[in-house]
Design a protein around this nucleic acid. Structure first.
Lengths: 67, 67
DNA sequence: CTGTGACTTTTAGTCCGTC
DNA sequence: AGACGGACTAAAAGTCACA
């Protein structure tokens, strides 16, 4: 699943760029810690509203998270 | 739900630009006709793999469908 | 051709952990 | 700090008959 990989890499890259742990990011994004872990490993197929939540702490759009 | 609206409009706009009925587009995308109807009215919260399916017939990326 | 309600199956997403 | 598992609930996937 190509697109999941792309999201996974974007997420991890941006989170590490901000020096946030998965847990800290999860809190900021309002999602669960274990879910962030799964997403970064491309194990999940999130909905677009979740992608929007992921985008918010970075101040980017959902579209950019999938680019 | 902001992002669902954005997807809905992009989808309808692009489908009509190609002069495809919902049914014809559904066939091309490999999803059900009524699901397309729901999506264009913002009634569904699709996963990113569905967004990818929607993007394919237009030859664009999933990211562009959410832009 | 498209909208809609109802429906069943599948999976998204949470929460408890351990390694 | 993060990977990973099990069990659970909420919601999405996917389809249909009919307006």
């Amino acid at each position: 699943m190509e697109i999941r990989e792309r999201l996974a890499r974007n997420l991890r890259r941006r989170r590490e760029a901000n020096n946030w742990s998965q847990e800290e990011f999860a809190d900021r994004a309002g999602i669960h810690r274990t879910y962030v872990s799964d997403l970064e490993r491309g194990r999940r197929n999130p909905t677009i509203t979740v992608v929007e939540k992921l985008a918010k702490p970075f101040g980017v759009t959902a579209s950019e998270m999938l680019a």
